[in-house]
């Protein structure tokens, strides 16, 4: 990633700690403050190991417990930290195969891991993930020179490229010709985020992003007077978007082009809503004014408050 201009490795890190009873703690460098990591990261682990999501605990935010990571920003948590988790799980499975080979008296290369079970390829000889975890902490006759007890792995993952989600946003507005007030009638988002781990979480991220973007487009404004005095120092003057400022959204992610360079095939989704919505709203307003014969209006600075839209209509 450093070669692409960031000048530092934009890695993230995960430690997967399997307990003797087969429950799992994952310590992540990325932090969840509403994005749903606890749900989605646990899903990734549970899917990969063929165990219940309830057996997975995601630990984040406590710097005395977690590995050093680069954090949650830039729509990167699942693509980067999730990939680090995937790499750490690869190491867990690799070590599990060594333990299984020892227990099943087979060659390590003959062990297959599938659906939570380590088996000798082509036979019905198998050990469950839980049995391997227990054996890792209660080892019997381990060849200690080549097989350490314990089952805990850390991976640092530095992506070799950005992810490239693509989307199209469609906004329909009505403008009150007497007051300049803009009302959003419908809003549709179609995004290709690559593989989607949890559709509901992804849809929620898009909803939140679109709300933020509509706020930026229509109401939010940090204003100063000519002396540098902040005029919008409270919510009496700084307009936050509220539920009744926003429409219901149609969200689609049926087009799936997996990312080609990370192990999960996922792309960033957190910022898409906030990036796609402001230009869609402003273009819709300009288009509506043109359709009403006001061809002279090609640009209005955000936020498109009623007063600004009305003023543009008068010019």
């Amino acid at each position: 990633m450093g070669q692409l201009g960031s000048r530092v490795g934009l890695y993230d890190a995960a430690t997967v700690r399997v307990s003797a009873t087969g429950t799992i703690q994952v310590m992540t460098g990325a932090h969840s403050h509403g994005q749903g990591h606890e749900t989605v990261f646990a899903q990734v682990v549970a899917d990969k190991l063929g165990i219940a999501e309830a057996a997975v605990e995601i630990v984040h935010g406590d710097t005395s417990k977690i590995p050093f990571g680069m954090g949650s920003y830039g729509s990167r948590s699942l693509a980067v930290c999730g990939s680090a988790m995937d790499r750490a799980l690869d190491k867990i499975i690799a070590k599990g195969k060594k333990i299984a080979a020892h227990m099943l008296e087979a060659a390590e290369g003959d062990i297959t891991f599938e659906n939570g079970s380590f088996s000798v390829t082509g036979t019905d000889k198998a050990k469950s993930f839980g049995e391997i975890a227990f054996s890792a902490y209660v080892p019997h006759n381990y060849p200690l020179e080549t097989l350490e007890p314990g089952l805990e792995e850390t991976a640092f993952y530095d992506p070799n490229n950005f992810t490239y989600p693509a989307g199209a946003y469609l906004c329909e507005v009505e403008i009150d010709p007497d007051t300049g007030k803009v009302t959003i009638c419908s809003f549709t988002c179609a995004d290709d985020f690559g593989n989607v781990m949890n559709p509901m979480v992804v849809e929620g991220q898009v909803h939140g992003g679109v709300a933020q973007g509509i706020g930026q487009a229509l109401v939010e404004h940090t204003a100063y007077d000519e002396n540098g005095q902040l005029l919008t120092a409270s919510y009496m003057d700084y307009a936050m978007p509220r539920a009744d400022d926003l429409p219901f959204y149609q969200v689609d992610h049926s087009c799936v082009t997996p990312c080609s360079h990370n192990p999960l095939g996922v792309k960033g989704c957190g910022e898409a809503g906030a990036i796609g919505s402001p230009p869609a709203v402003v273009n819709a307003v300009i288009d509506a004014l043109h359709r009403a014969g006001m061809d002279h209006v090609d640009h209005i600075d955000m936020p498109l408050t009623p007063a600004r839209v009305w003023a543009a209509m008068q010019a």
């Binding site: 007497d178 204003a223 003057d237 007063a307 003023a311």
Partner: peptide
């Protein structure tokens, strides 16, 4: 007249 609307805008809104 303030950041939420000019004097002319308010005068216009009174009629509307």
């Amino acid at each position: 007249a303030d950041l939420h609307g000019s004097a002319d805008y308010r005068a216009h809104l009174v009629k509307v």
